[in-house]
Write a protein that binds this DNA or RNA. Structure first.
Length: 569
DNA sequence: GCCGTTTTCGGCCCGACTGTTTTCAGTCG
């Protein structure tokens, strides 16, 4: 693990451990903020210390700086080791249980010696918690429910899992007579790649009626909370849904409040405070006087900002972005002109070449870059050299049929262990473009894997890098890799990096896109479609590009067909 | 533990709901 990632992990862990210890909550928060700050910077910890960059980082003062130096010099932080030794590892796991925070976890550990989820479950089932102060029957039941939920669903859902529920519920809420306005908020509105729950904000003059109907929604499994203005339910799928009602005049403030990430909202409120105002879900106030705003745009304006699209509200660089008047609009689905990275029945796709092309054309797109698997991917029906010739012949024939649409000849070439591509040079030369992807041999060191991928990027035939980190959301982490070096190499070699739009991947990660944008990276929003419906996955990828702050000009497949012909020609 | 035109101490964002209490702590977002 890189020293930067180690430092972030240690600081995050220390924040949790300090909470468990019952330390000053602001001390704990200082570690959390410092970890976030480290995340914002590219490069490595040791480099920052040598260059002095560490001195200008926000939230890292004398003490934390010394700890970071200690980490680089000794490979660990003594205080962290001591803290960790004072609590069993299982206690950290217990904190993942919904409804169990550091205070209660600490009591359970100190009073009953409980230090893992299994023991806690057993204790709840045998009424061991009842004598403890602050614990009673309902707390036990809630903990058992939380344990069950944690085990069943890991607690998170991918975009494609959450969106259908969101659409259903918003339609149902909109249909209610007392609901004047309703919108999805929370992390799904911000287009996070996975979400923990759904948040809805409703404007109504009759909150009780809306709440009553909501907690009895047909998809409800059970009710977590049912108050006059705020309720939470769990759906049978295990997804939690929160609903918050406000008066119609409070709606824009509430929508803003329930959309921004915790960190974004904190900065917004601080911004208000700096201007002698106070911001909460009910309004923006100067003293006791409401600063009237009829939309989120007006609230941003009152705080000296242009409208910040929901996807950007993560407290990264959106405030800087929104202070400028002339920032270009974020890319939209309608900007997309064609697609690259799709599979056909030649390899492991489920639709024929013609079917894929016609489906793409029917969506109003003007080109399809077909990329079946290369020969080493035998498990996925990788193409032999003969099959390539056959496919190219069919593409040539199909292309005769259309003037305003074109299939480009591509291949998703495996990046072999040594970083080379999967066919001899004279075969590679026959393609219009090549996507290079890693599909095997994940167990390399970060240095080896990074060098392997950079070698593929430097190959003159490589047009794009496919799913650069190999992650599968909620399933498999990225292989070890220095993603910043990869981005730098791609830019230096004129190679496009894909945003793989498959909702299991969403790879390149949006957190890297800002760096790429500043350095001049071009991305392509690719569906990696194996079926006809899979083509529509580009909606997820476009959202991720937006979240990374990209405009149409940063996205290769927003170019029109003549431009693409020229670029690939 | 950090920070500073309120600058080396005393702040550090704000509110709802639950379950336990009998006025509030804990958790969550």
């Amino acid at each position: 693990m890189s020293d930067k990632r180690t430092a972030i992990k240690i600081f995050e862990e220390m924040a949790t451990l300090l909470e468990l210890q019952g330390a000053n909550p602001f001390k704990s928060r200082a570690y959390t903020k410092a970890a976030r700050e480290l995340q914002q910077h590219e490069g490595q910890l040791s480099e920052w210390i040598v260059s002095g960059a560490i001195h200008s980082m926000k939230g890292i003062g004398k003490s934390l700086k010394e700890k970071l130096i200690e980490l680089v010099e000794t490979g660990k932080i003594r205080e962290h080791e001591e803290l960790r030794a004072s609590f069993p590892d299982g206690l950290m796991e217990m904190l993942k249980i919904p409804g169990l925070g550091p205070k209660k976890a600490r009591t359970l550990y100190q009073e009953l010696g409980l230090s893992n989820i299994d023991d806690l479950e057993e204790a709840c089932l045998t009424d061991k918690l009842l004598p403890l102060p602050g614990f009673a029957k309902k707390t036990q039941e809630k903990l058992l429910q939380g344990i069950e939920q944690l085990r069943m669903y890991q607690g998170r859902f991918r975009l494609n899992q959450a969106l259908p529920y969101a659409k259903q519920i918003i339609a149902d809420l909109r249909a209610m007579p007392d609901v004047e306005q309703v919108e999805l908020g929370g992390s799904l509105r911000r287009w996070k790649e996975t979400v923990k729950d759904l948040d809805f904000v409703v404007a109504t003059r009759n909150p009780e009626a809306v709440m009553k109907a909501f907690v009895e929604h047909p998809l409800k499994e059970h009710i977590i909370a049912h108050g006059p203005t705020k309720s939470s339910i769990t759906l049978s799928s295990g997804l939690n849904v929160d609903l918050r009602t406000v008066k119609p005049e409070q709606y824009p403030y509430a929508l803003m409040h329930f959309t921004g990430s915790k960190e974004h909202n904190t900065t917004m409120r601080k911004r208000a405070k700096d201007r002698d105002m106070k911001l909460n879900e009910y309004g923006l106030f100067r003293g006791d006087t409401l600063v009237e705003c009829s939309s989120e745009t007006e609230i941003f304006a009152a705080l000296g900002l242009h409208f910040v699209p929901p996807e950007l509200r993560e407290d990264r660089d959106e405030f800087e972005w929104a202070e400028k008047a002339d920032h270009p609009p974020l890319v939209e689905l309608s900007d997309i002109q064609g697609i690259f990275h799709a599979h056909s029945t030649y390899s492991d796709g489920s639709a024929t070449l013609r079917e894929m092309a016609e489906a793409t054309r029917d969506m109003g797109l003007t080109y399809l870059g077909i990329t079946d698997h290369s020969r080493t991917a035998y498990y996925a029906g990788g193409l032999s050299i003969e099959e390539i010739q056959q496919q190219h012949k069919e593409i040539d024939e199909l292309n005769q049929e259309w003037k305003d649409f074109q299939i480009f000849k591509g291949i998703e070439s495996d990046i072999l262990g040594d970083g080379s591509l999967d066919y001899p040079e004279e075969i590679l030369a026959q393609f219009d473009f090549i996507i290079a992807s890693v599909h095997s041999q994940f167990n390399m060191s970060s240095e080896e894997m990074t060098a392997r991928i950079i070698r593929a990027i430097e190959h003159p035939s490589t047009t794009m890098l496919g799913h650069p980190t190999g992650r599968l959301l909620l399933n498999r982490d990225s292989y070890p890799i220095d993603i910043y070096k990869i981005v730098d190499a791609a830019i230096a070699n004129n190679v496009i990096i894909e945003i793989n739009s498959n909702p299991y991947r969403l790879d390149l990660d949006w957190r890297i896109l800002g760096y790429g944008r500043e350095k001049g990276l071009v991305v392509s929003v690719n569906p990696d479609a194996h079926t006809i419906p899979g083509i529509s996955d580009i909606q997820y990828g476009v959202g991720i590009a937006r979240k990374g702050g990209l405009s149409a000009k940063h996205v290769f497949n927003t170019y029109d067909l003549p431009t693409i012909r020229e670029k690939l020609g």
